[in-house]
Structures are given as C-alpha cells and as structure tokens.
C-alpha cells in the first residue's frame, strides 16, 4: 500500500530556490494531514550538507544521490534515479516545484509510471484516496479543481502561492546510487544569473512595463524593483517589440505571477495580460490614459506620466526603507 509524501527537492548551484522550499513545506502539510512521513530526494554533486538541511522544513528522511554527473540537470539520469527511488519507497504522493526542470521531469515520470499528474497546482488536499488540487487553465482565465488518481499521484506546485514553513527536526540522510547509465542528453554549457536577482514567478514585488514605456529603457522599473527587492516583468507588446527578453513576459502566453504587489506601468490591460496577474494581492496601475482597461481591475490607479511618477515612487520607497 502506497504511503507517505515524497518531494523532489531540486538543487541549482547547490542551493534550493524558494519554490522548492515551498514544495517541501506543502509536502509536510500534506504528510501531517495523512499522518504519514515526508521523504525528500536531492540529486547533485557534493550535496550532503544541503540534503541534511531539509530537516529544517520538517523532512523525515532524505535520499541523497551524490554524483558529479548530477551537478547539472541530466534529464535521463534524473528521471531514472527518481523513478527508481519512487519504486523503492512506494509513496502515495510525489511533489516538486513547477520549475522548467520540475515540469519536464514529472511529465516524463507520469508517462513512465502511467499515473496522474497535475501541473502548476495550489491548494493541495486529499479527497478520499485521490489528490485534489487547484490549477489555472487558459493562463489564469479559469480556475479548475482537478482530481488526480494513480499510484503515486504526482503534482508540481506553482511558485509563490504557498509559504515556506520551518518545522525543524533531524532528517535521516540515506545515500542512494544514481542511475547514470544510458544518458542521452548532456548539458554542455550554462548561463545562469548568479545571486541577487529575484525570479519573476517567486518575487513579492513585480514591476512590469508595457507599450507605454515607449522603448527598451527599463532602468526606472529596474530601480523600483531593486528598491523593493522585486523583479521586472513586461507585457507581450514590450516583448514583441524586442524591448525585453521572453523570460520577462507576464500573461497568458508568458508567466502567471502572484506577487504581493504588481505594478503595471504603461500597460493597457489586455485580457491575456490580466489573466496572468489576477492572483496578485494588490495591483497598481500607472498610466497616462484615463480609459486604460487596467484601471478597471487595479486596486490603486495612478493617472500620470510614468517617467515622472515612477521616480517619485522610488524616492518614497527609499524614504520608507531608510
């Protein structure tokens, strides 16, 4: 009989992202509801300390696959090793953060295990023997409650919609030999922002610019984001104009974000954009145009020239933060 909750704790550059710790905390919550143990798996190179540290978030047992071949995301080795771990442990539910890696890995696992998987979930709960979760469809235009069945039941968790909760205990760390044979893909290079930059989907404050920016100079928005410890986003228009990278795009054809505060600067508020920001706690719109649809959904509207208003906001935030 399947039992327990199992979390794939993705490491990047020998650290955990906030989204991964959120997944671990959600795993603890679900394990408590079931009265069953929480197990986590870490794959990487030189990760012993990192693995043991998961006890801070209430993990009972950590499987650690420590191998230089696992330092970067080795798709086949990760899939096979996690597959083997799941077969040995026989968990009821398996979770991960919905990162690019987490989603790719879990999509393959679901096919391998012929089991149910729900991507980018929130509000996980047991519904009898099934796992229920909420997820947004159509880039946030519709919210679905889905029921996942199978053994185990898989889900990836949307970043920034649950909390990181400390529940310290001493985690038992067990090493597990990885399955590295037969790997077909290989990471030959990587360009990752090192430290400091806050991930768009994980940020508490998102400052986005649209067509009203008038060009690729986003330095004002970057400064406001920096003063708040947040991230910069962009509308589809701004990305299509080539002003901002694709990875900054917010909306149905970009990222769905749910920060504490979303600043929409010079963004008119197209349906597909609004879909991606709807779950923000507070939306602030700054726009010259009285009739901009964004004002109809913003909690606070500021009518004005963003080139004048944003610097003044930066000054106020700096005053506040001392």
């Amino acid at each position: 009989m399947a039992s327990g909750v199992f979390v794939f704790a993705e490491q990047v550059d020998n650290g955990f992202k906030k989204s991964t710790l959120e997944a671990v905390s959600e795993g603890r919550r679900l394990a408590d509801a079931l009265g069953e143990p929480l197990c986590a798996m870490v794959m990487g190179g030189g990760i012993a300390e990192l693995a043991g540290g998961l006890g801070t978030y209430g993990v009972d047992k950590v499987l650690a696959s420590d191998d230089t071949a696992l330092i970067d995301f080795a798709a086949d080795a990760y899939t096979q090793t996690l597959h083997q771990a799941i077969q040995e442990m026989g968990p009821r539910v398996v979770l991960a953060a919905a990162t690019v890696t987490g989603k790719e890995l879990f999509a393959r696992l679901a096919a391998k295990l012929d089991t149910g998987l729900a991507m980018e979930c929130s509000d996980l709960a047991m519904d009898g023997d099934a796992l229920s979760a909420k997820r947004s469809l159509y880039g946030g235009k519709v919210i679905a409650t889905v029921t996942v069945q199978g053994s185990p039941m898989l889900a990836t968790l949307r970043p920034n919609v649950s909390d990181v909760v400390e529940a310290p205990k001493t985690a038992e760390v067990v090493s597990m030999a990885p399955v590295t044979s037969g790997g077909r893909t290989q990471v030959v290079d990587k360009q990752l922002e090192s430290g400091g930059k806050v991930e768009l989907t994980e940020a508490n404050f998102v400052v986005s610019g649209g067509r009203g920016m008038g060009g690729p100079d986003y330095s004002l928005l970057e400064e406001l984001a920096k003063s708040l410890g947040g991230a910069v986003g962009a509308s589809r228009n701004a990305v299509d104009e080539g002003w901002r990278p694709v990875s900054d795009q917010v909306g149905q054809t970009g990222k769905v974000v749910s920060p504490k505060v979303y600043f929409a600067c010079g963004i008119s508020g197209a349906i597909q954009h609004v879909a991606g920001i709807r779950t923000s706690d507070v939306i602030v719109a700054i726009n010259k145009d009285d009739d901009a649809p964004i004002f109809r959904i913003a909690d606070y509207g500021v009518k004005g020239d963003l080139n004048e208003v944003v610097p003044a906001i930066i000054a106020e935030v700096k005053k506040l933060k001392g």
Binding site: D189, K190, E193, V246
Partner: peptide, 11 residues
C-alpha cells in the same frame, strides 16, 4: 530557457 538563465543541451 530555465529560471534565471539558459542551459545548452546536446542530444
């Protein structure tokens, strides 16, 4: 394209 950058992968 991954969070915070990109990986170059050969297959």
């Amino acid at each position: 394209l991954v969070e915070g950058g990109s990986l170059v992968v050969e297959a």
